[in-house]
Design a binder for these strands. Structure first.
Lengths: 355, 355
DNA sequence: CTGAAAGCGCTTACAG
DNA sequence: CTGAAAGCGCTTACAG
């Protein structure tokens, strides 16, 4: 029952059993069979099989400096991130790379990453100590951690960030095409006759650049329609005041006939606030989400939203990193944009009084 | 921009900069400071800091045969498994172990694992080639893979299986207390006056032992109530006939007033079939799920179900493995049971005609 | 208090 | 066609 890790079979055991030298066994098992007699090859293969020998990838890692391993700092936070992870895993596995996925904090109470900077740096360093060849990071591991981990700052280890974006790129990034998505949303709502539109977002820390970009894209898209009155609202740091803020928003002087939420998560709060205020969706107020999370379709009414192609985002991130590792990536950092798909459903309708 | 992995700082560089020997630097940086002069220690620490040297855990792995790494073969399939993963990650991280989470197939179309045996074995072997110290597996990686991977069969590498259970234990297991949960369900339904009760499950392959146990536990619990007529139904291999089977079940001669689903996933199908058949939940038929997945509470009506303590299950699995690795686990395989919590909600009500 | 030496499990030129 | 030797980046007795 007790494990004895030292008892593993070594190549030398295989070589001995097959009656060849260590190096012969090594070369044969690595496919270098041409130089050896068919009989020798067979003896070695059979000996390895019989003893249950398996190559030791730690050795390869030490010798080559490459572990064929990628650190992925992304929690399975919601269906979007789970799908991103799946995309990453698939693409890496296809190239025989192994993702090592870790995250900080527990899923129910995602911490404020600013407060956990120390732990964040420690997490990265744990991965770097394992000699991952590269890293894929989610937004909260933005600039701050980047600057703390020497390997990243010095660009010894390539990094791809998802949904993180800033003016001067510090690494490869993969992001949803926010501008196009915002225009889709604006076009849809304006077409339905809405003139008073509000946006409700979470806080926008520097590391949550996507949040800022999403709002700004929508503001820009709305600015193309001078007939629109538009207002952006924002939740507090933790989002604990979400329903309350949504309620105030709906009752605000603007009296929006449509609310665009930063994501489907916030849209849920708008639904609740609308119910509290006795407002019907979409008759009294239209609601648009973002992401098309797994629950969006079964909300009552089904939520109009922008589907993010999460799997594709993950795959792009992984292939980008792999090409970087293979030295095949462009010299400049890549700023990859993945389109979203506007999904009109029943949470949006004609503006009240427009019919 | 281009990465040069060979350019990493080695301990020798640190030693040279500090003006000490390699071994002195090694011992000082590992905390063996007592034998050295305070000044020497400082010079070494500073040199390491200055050069940005980081220990190479691959070396430790090679030297000790332990990598402080655990292979976790669990996809983030639904909120249950995500929470299990979170529990595992938390417990491993607390002990400075690193989980390496991988899975087979894509999340949308989870493959038939029987059909992918080769890939499954390859997946395990990829982990074993990385010299993981142990493995945590989800049910589909049951007996079959177990028998194929020599390290597992020979118990060189300890394994904990979640929700896998069979008569003669082949490894440590962590499972929900199915018997108690089944009794809770039976008591609840009988108390509501139900006399005609059906169970709807997916297929029960050998590797999905939990499915079999769940059904059998319910059958046993029902047998304690002789006034109950009980029938078990089952979906086809892929579950593609789910709604259809549920429809037939509801219209069957039994005319069940209550349906117990193998999990919340199947309960969704029962809801749909009930709607198709013009039956109201719970007035015409009561429905009970299992797991308390993230969507259960917001189903219409909210689903009565058994909450599985996923986080606890994950933590137990991880700590069990860690104690096994530390040689502190009991000699026999552990069969850990985690209680579920019965969650009565609005999908169950008095049996029709009972009032 | 410090350094030369062996070894972890291999791979890869290189000499026979 | 095959084997002795050096080396990957360290750690750890052991000798000074």
């Amino acid at each position: 029952m007790t494990t004895s890790p030292g008892s593993r079979i070594r190549l030398q055991d295989v070589a001995t059993l097959a009656g060849v030298s260590l190096s012969a066994a090594s070369r044969i098992l690595r496919g270098d069979e041409e130089d050896f007699g068919a009989d020798t090859c067979r003896r070695v293969t059979e000996a390895a099989e019989k003893l249950g020998w398996r190559r030791n990838l730690l050795v390869n890692g030490m010798q080559t400096g490459r572990t064929r391993t990628v650190g992925v700092v992304i929690p399975p936070y919601d269906s979007f991130w789970v799908a991103v992870l799946a995309g990453i895993h698939g693409a890496l596995a296809a190239d025989d790379y192994l993702p090592i996925t870790v995250w900080l904090g527990d899923l129910d109470h995602m911490p404020h990453f600013e407060a956990d900077e120390k732990q964040g740096v420690a997490l990265m360093n744990r991965l770097l100590d394992r000699r991952v060849d590269g890293l894929i990071l989610w937004p909260p591991f933005g600039l701050a951690y980047y600057e703390h981990a020497r390997e990243l700052r010095d660009q010894t280890v390539p990094v791809v960030m998802i949904d993180y974006h800033c003016d001067t790129l510090i690494c490869d990034t993969v992001t949803t095409n926010e501008v196009a998505a915002a225009q889709d949303i604006a076009r849809h709502l304006v077409g339905l006759g809405h003139r008073r539109i509000a946006y409700i977002g979470g806080r926008e820390t520097p590391s949550q650049a996507w949040a800022q970009e999403r709002r700004q894209s929508l503001e820009a898209a709305m600015a193309d329609h001078p007939e629109i009155t538009f207002a952006s609202w924002r939740l507090n740091k933790t989002g604990s005041d979400a329903v309350d803020v949504c309620r105030r928003l709906l009752n605000s002087r603007l009296r929006p006939t449509a609310v665009v939420a930063a994501s489907d998560h916030e849209a849920v709060h708008v639904y609740r606030a609308a119910a509290d205020a006795g407002l019907t969706i979409p008759d009294d107020v239209s609601v648009v989400g973002f992401a098309d999370l797994d629950f969006a379709q079964s909300m009552v009414p089904p939520l109009t939203t922008v589907r993010q192609r999460a799997g594709e985002i993950g795959r792009r991130a992984a292939t980008l990193l792999l090409s970087r590792l293979a030295g095949k990536a462009p010299a400049e950092f890549v700023d990859a944009r993945v389109d979203g798909d506007f999904m009109p459903r029943q949470s949006t309708g004609p503006a009240k009084g427009t019919g």
